[in-house]
Simulated scan of single mutants.
Amino acid sequence: MSYSIGQVAGLAGVTVRTLHHYGRIGLLEPQGRTGSGYRQYAERDLDRLRHILFYRELGFPLEEIATILDDPGADTRAHLRRQHELLTGRIGRLHTMIEAIEKEMEADSMGIQLTPQEKFEIFGPNYSEDYETEAEQRWGDSEAWRQSQQRAGKLTKQQWIEIKESTDDLNRRLAEAMTSGAAADSPAAMDLAEEHRRGIEMFYDCSYAMHRGLGDMYVADERFTRTYDEVAPGLAGWLRDAIHANASRHEA
């Protein structure tokens, strides 16, 4: 079966102009022609175009793509293996970036006062200061924000490292409790929720009502949900329920 240039453009989601360009530079030049001289693309041409667009999406220059595809030692299976490896590597890097950003978002809400270099060192190479602006816009007028700025400003770099390690350890124990089958309103879960609240009080006074609100935010804001659910699927909702149960226990 053969396809016209318009049909190929529609199938691949590219413009006819792009296909003409690929033809001019010898990257994709179909051998088929109609009686009127119009290009006709065969199945093998569509396969080549798919590989071109994949490598293009990953940022490869057209010249390098041509070299890769014209390698006589590489068949379709070799290209698929290579593409799988490239995608797997990219996914891993993206997950690392997401984790670093989400940790930074949570830290920003606490009012971290570190130099950019220290933030890169503690939170990873994908640190961005954009989230500090968001945190200030959301909570800048609150007493909690003012307290967090004052208290966080007195912490040293080593103290921040210890806080991060302590937070990671608490998240691990929360996940272990949940996955072991502990109910969110069990004494063990509520004790962990109380430890979570006291950790927040290092930065600002966190009443049980405020803690309830934070728990709700962990579920309502998908960015916080991902932060906890990356530790263990469902952890954000379980922690929210444990926070509510602990608040009810202390407010009774």
Results as ranks from 00 to 15, higher is better:
Ser2Trp: 07
Tyr3Gln: 05
Ser4Leu: 11
Gly6Ile: 09
Ala9Ile: 11
Gly10Pro: 09
Ala12Leu: 13
Val14Asp: 09
Arg17Ser: 08
Thr18Ala: 15
Thr18His: 11
Tyr22Gln: 08
Leu28Met: 10
Glu29Tyr: 02
Pro30Thr: 10
Gln31Leu: 00
Ser36Leu: 10
Ser36Cys: 06
Gly37Ser: 05
Gly37Thr: 05
Tyr38Ile: 07
Arg39Glu: 07
Tyr41Glu: 08
Ala42Phe: 01
Glu43Ile: 01
Arg50Thr: 15
Leu53Asp: 03
Phe54Ile: 06
Arg56Gln: 15
Phe60Ile: 01
Pro61Asp: 05
Leu62Gln: 14
Glu64Leu: 02
Ile68Ala: 00
Ile68Asp: 09
Leu69Trp: 00
Leu69Thr: 10
Asp70Gln: 13
Pro72Gly: 01
Gly73Arg: 14
Arg81Ser: 12
Arg81Gln: 07
Arg82Thr: 03
Glu85Ala: 10
Gly89Lys: 04
Arg90His: 15
Arg90Tyr: 02
Leu94Gln: 12
Met97Ile: 14
Ile98Met: 15
Ile101His: 14
Ile101Glu: 13
Lys103Pro: 00
Met105Asp: 10
Met110Gln: 04
Gly111Ala: 04
Leu114Thr: 07
Gln117Ala: 14
Glu118Phe: 02
Glu118Ile: 00
Lys119His: 01
Phe120Tyr: 04
Phe120Asp: 02
Phe123Lys: 08
Asn126Gln: 06
Glu129Ser: 02
Tyr131Ile: 09
Glu132Asn: 12
Glu132Phe: 14
Glu134Pro: 06
Asp141Val: 04
Ala144Asn: 02
Trp145Thr: 12
Ser148Ile: 07
Ser148Leu: 02
Gly153Val: 02
Gly153Ile: 09
Gly153His: 00
Leu155Asp: 08
Thr156His: 07
Lys157Met: 03
Glu165Val: 09
Asp168Tyr: 08
Arg172Thr: 13
Arg173Cys: 02
Leu174His: 12
Ala175Trp: 09
Glu176Ala: 15
Ala182Ser: 15
Ala184Asn: 06
Pro187Gly: 03
Ala188Val: 15
Ala189Pro: 04
Ala193Thr: 13
Ala193Glu: 07
Glu195His: 12
Arg197Met: 07
Arg197Trp: 01
Arg197His: 03
Phe203His: 13
Ala209Gln: 14
Arg212Gly: 02
Gly215Ala: 08
Asp216Pro: 06
Met217Asn: 03
Val219Ile: 13
Ala220Met: 11
Glu222Gly: 13
Arg223Val: 15
Phe224Met: 12
Thr225Cys: 00
Arg226Thr: 14
Arg226Cys: 05
Arg226Met: 12
Tyr228Arg: 02
Glu230Leu: 13
Val231Thr: 15
Val231His: 05
Leu235Ala: 03
Ala236Gln: 04
Gly237Cys: 11
Leu239Gly: 10
Ala242Val: 06
Ser248Leu: 14
Arg249Glu: 09
Arg249Pro: 03
His250Ala: 12
His250Tyr: 07
Ala252Asp: 15
Ala252Arg: 15
